[in-house]
Amino acid sequence: MNPMLPLKSKILDLWDETDDIKSFLIEDVINKKPLPGQFYELSLSGLGEVPISFASWEDGLLFSIKRAGKITEYLHRMKKNDEIGIRGPYGKGFPITDKFKVLIAGGIGLPPARSVIEHSLSNSDNKIQLLYGARSPRDLVYKELLNEWKKKFDVKITVDVADDNWSGHVGVVTKIFNYIKNTDSFFYIIGPTIMMKFAVMELKKMNVPDENIFLSMERRMKCGIGICGHCNIGKYYVCKDGPVFNYSLIKDIPELFF
C-alpha cells in the first residue's frame, strides 16, 4: 500500500477556539495511540494535505488549527460529519520522563503542549509547569482547560498586548521565565521560530544544559515520511527525525532559526 495514502475519516465535532483557531475532533480510524508531540497529515481530497501536531487523544483525535495558509483556510470552512483523510502518527515526540517538565508554549504551540500535559496527568505525573504566551487575551486557546490545569500544576500566562479586562502578565513569554521553578528540568519549547530562539537564549543564561532542552520544529513538509526532501534541518528531516529535537543535536545548524 502506498504510505502516502490517507485513510478516510470524518469530523466528529468542531468549534471555535479564537478568531483564527478552530478545534477539530476527528475519528481515529488509525486507532493507534500517538506519542505526545507527534503529528498527522490531514488530507482534504482534491485540495491538499497539511501536517498538524495532535492536541489530545481520547474520544478521537483532537487538532487545534490556526488559519494560516491555503489548506487550513479550507479546513476552517468544513462542517461536522465532513469527510477528512488522515495518516500518521508521524515523527518523534517529546521524551517520556519522570523529570520535572517545563513547557514553554507560544501561540498555536499550546495544542502540542496539551498532548504532553494530558499524557503526564493520565500517568498521575503532575511534575509539570506551563508557561504560555499569546498575542492577546482573545488569542488564548483552551481557556476552561487552563483553569482546570491551574488546580493541578503551575500555569503562568502572558499576552503581548493586554485588553481592559486583562490583569495578568504582559510581554513575551521569556518575561515570565522568572517563575521557572526548577532549572534542573526538561524544557519543552513549542512556538514560532523567533520565540524559540529567544527562549533558548534565556535558558542558556540560566545555565540549562543543551541536553535538557527540546524543541518542536516546523518546516515545509509534504510527504511526512522522510522522502520528499522538503523539511530538512541539516542532515535531519523534521518529519521523521523530529519534529521534536534535542537542542544539542541541532544547535550548530545555521538555519535552525530564521
Binding site: 482534504l44 482534491g46 491538499g48 494535505e49 509534504k222 522522502i227 520528499c228 526532501g229 522538503h230
Partner: peptide, 9 residues
Amino acid sequence: FCFDVYDEN
C-alpha cells in the same frame, strides 16, 4: 529526489 505534492482533483 525532492518532490512536491499537490491536488488537482
